[in-house]
Amino acid sequence: MSDLPVKVIHVESGKILTGTDAPKAGQLEAWLEMNPGYEVAPR
């Protein structure tokens, strides 16, 4: 599992989470399930 943060964006508000606020790569799927409305942000 990776500890690198994955940049995500809230589709409706446009809020972007990066760095320490962003979910870790190894926890991404579970985090997205618990935080509806967020998607992986385009690079």
Rank of each mutant, 00 (worst) to 15 (best):
E39M: 12
G37P: 02
W31T: 07
E12P: 12
A30G: 10
V8G: 09
G26S: 15
Q27V: 09
D3G: 02
A30E: 14
E33I: 06
Q27E: 15
G26L: 03
E33G: 08
G37S: 04
N35R: 02
L28G: 05
E39G: 04
A22V: 11
E33C: 05
S2E: 15
R43N: 13
P36Y: 04
P5I: 11
K24G: 06
Q27G: 10
M34S: 12
S2G: 14
D3V: 01
V40I: 09
P42F: 02
W31G: 11
L4P: 11
H10A: 03
A41T: 06
P5K: 15
G37C: 01
V8I: 06
R43T: 13
E33L: 10
Q27S: 09
V40F: 00
A22Y: 02
H10N: 11
M34L: 12
S2D: 13
M34V: 09
P5A: 14
Y38D: 03
D3L: 01
V8F: 08
L4N: 15
V40C: 07
I9D: 08
K7T: 14
N35Y: 04
Q27K: 09
K7W: 03
V6G: 11
A30I: 03
V6S: 09
V8M: 02
S2L: 10
V8D: 11
R43H: 15
P23N: 05
E39T: 10
P23K: 02
R43D: 15
E12L: 06
G19S: 14
H10F: 00
V6Y: 11
L32C: 03
E12G: 09
Q27M: 10
E29N: 11
A22Q: 05
E12F: 00
G37R: 02
V6L: 11
L32I: 03
W31C: 05
W31P: 07
P5Q: 15
L32T: 01
I9A: 12
G37M: 10
H10G: 06
L28T: 05
S2W: 08
P42I: 09
A30F: 01
P5R: 15
M1R: 02
T20V: 11
Q27H: 08
L32Y: 02
Y38T: 04
V40Q: 08
I9P: 09
L32H: 06
Q27R: 05
L4D: 15
P42G: 13
Y38R: 02
I9V: 13
V8S: 07
N35G: 01
M1E: 13
V11E: 08
H10Q: 02
V11P: 10
K7A: 15
V6M: 13
I9T: 12
K15M: 08
V6W: 05
S2C: 09
A41M: 14
P5F: 14
